[in-house]
């Protein structure tokens, strides 16, 4: 019986060690791998380090989409502040003026360089964050 107890204790410590390893991995990842979501006005207020990846959400300003070759620039607004966004690539089908957009990328020197522009399944769908903005309008 004593043998068993010792064994159980040993197993317990193995499990404890693995769980601790898992937990520390998770905490480490959570700290460094989060993409904070900002509206343009929030982003301008936040003091972001260069090279810090964030998500920017808002409405594409009417008449602001300019294309040159594969490069696209447009203005994202939350009706309080505006930010110019630059992107190289093919935009999603549901990306259009006067509708919601979420861009993942970096804010540097007053401009936003997007790595990804997000598409949605449904033209009626809006992220909850943008819903609040549209209501404010």
């Amino acid at each position: 019986m004593l043998q068993n107890r010792k064994k159980r204790l040993q197993n317990f410590f193995i499990v404890l060690f693995l769980s601790a390893l898992g937990a520390s991995l998770i905490l480490f990842s959570l700290n460094s791998k989060l993409d904070l979501f900002f509206s343009p006005s929030e982003m301008l207020l936040a003091e972001l380090k260069p090279g810090y990846r964030i998500k920017l959400g808002g409405m594409v300003k009417d008449g602001s989409i300019k294309r040159e070759g594969t490069k696209v620039s447009f203005i994202v607004t939350d009706f309080e502040a505006e930010v110019s966004v630059y992107f190289d690539g093919v935009t999603p089908d549901l990306f259009k003026e006067d509708s919601g957009v979420v861009a993942l990328g970096y804010f540097e020197d007053g401009l936003f360089f997007a790595e990804e522009i997000f598409a949605k399944h449904d033209e009626n769908y809006m992220p909850p964050e943008l819903m609040n903005m549209a209501e404010k309008k």
Binding site: G22, L25, I26, F28, S29, L30, S32, K33, L34, D35, L36, F37, F38, K55, L104, E129
Partner: peptide, 18 residues
Amino acid sequence: GEKVSIGSPYYNTIFSPL
């Protein structure tokens, strides 16, 4: 009230040692 999203970097970092 902070809005965040968790994407592939988080999962990649955790899953690769696992």
